[in-house]
Computed example of a mutant assay.
Amino acid sequence: MLIRKIAAAVFAVLALGGVQAVTAAPATAAPRILYYDASQAQEFKAVVDQGAQIWNNSVTNVRLLPVTAGRTPNIRVYADNGWPRAYTSSLGNGSWYMGRQAVNQGYHPPRIAAHEFGHLLGLPDRRTGLCADLMSGSSAPVNCTNPNPNATEARTVNNRFASAAVAVPSKVYVWQ
């Protein structure tokens, strides 16, 4: 008890003298790194990189990075003539397709890329029809160019990656 009183007095004197006592901030976990391989995304490689950067700017608990030599990617990205779609095997793992059919119909490629990455980050389709909701997918108007997750979507991803113990079952998501 006496030690606490002495410590409180020392801190009070230091504070009066303009000295601030610093306490250690709680440790924060490093973000989980997910590597993606866009080598098969053909003409959409830059758009895939843009979609990853959108998520990197929106969340703190996970980072999407291009795969480096000698690493196995968590996410593989392909391009084909169908609808965009994602195949998840677990949280942060799987593949997705940049489907030319949606692009040819006028959907915004960066929005498609960010949306499909969203599935690999654990988000389902929401079909709200709102441009503000990234996971509304093709239910939003074709002229919607918003590629950014809303606050709830970003918070959900951050929460999912705050702990390694969160499990997300495998699933297939199709844009249309």
Rank of each mutant, 00 (worst) to 15 (best):
M1R: 15
I3T: 14
I3P: 06
I3A: 15
I6A: 12
A7F: 13
A8R: 14
V10F: 11
F11V: 14
F11K: 14
F11Q: 13
V13D: 12
A15W: 13
G17N: 09
V19K: 10
V19M: 09
Q20R: 14
T23C: 02
A24T: 15
T28H: 10
A29G: 06
A29I: 03
A30G: 14
R32A: 04
R32C: 03
R32M: 01
L34V: 13
L34E: 00
Y35M: 10
Y35D: 01
Y35I: 04
D37R: 05
A41M: 03
E43H: 10
E43Q: 15
E43Y: 01
F44Q: 14
K45F: 00
K45E: 08
V47Y: 06
V47K: 08
V48R: 08
V48M: 02
D49P: 02
I54K: 01
W55I: 10
N57A: 10
V62A: 09
V62R: 00
V62N: 00
L64E: 08
L65Q: 15
P66T: 03
V67R: 12
A69D: 10
G70C: 08
G70P: 07
T72M: 10
T72E: 14
T72G: 10
T72W: 01
R76K: 15
Y78A: 08
D80V: 13
N81Q: 15
W83T: 14
R85L: 01
Y87V: 11
T88P: 06
S89P: 03
S90L: 03
S90H: 11
W96Q: 06
Y97L: 12
R100I: 01
Q101C: 07
A102G: 07
N104T: 14
Q105L: 10
G106M: 02
P110R: 02
P110K: 01
A114Y: 00
F117Q: 05
L120M: 09
L123Q: 07
D125R: 09
T128S: 10
T128R: 04
C131M: 05
C131L: 00
A132F: 02
D133Q: 04
D133Y: 07
M135S: 05
M135I: 05
M135H: 01
S136V: 01
S136A: 13
G137F: 04
S139H: 04
A140I: 08
A140E: 01
N143S: 15
N146E: 05
N146A: 02
P147E: 06
N148L: 08
N150I: 02
T152F: 10
T152K: 07
T152G: 03
E153G: 03
A154K: 05
T156V: 04
V157T: 04
V157H: 07
V157L: 09
A162V: 12
S163D: 11
A164S: 14
A165C: 06
A165M: 03
V166G: 03
V168E: 14
V168G: 04
S170Y: 06
S170H: 06
K171S: 02
K171V: 11
K171H: 13
Y173V: 15
Y173G: 01
Y173K: 01
W175P: 00
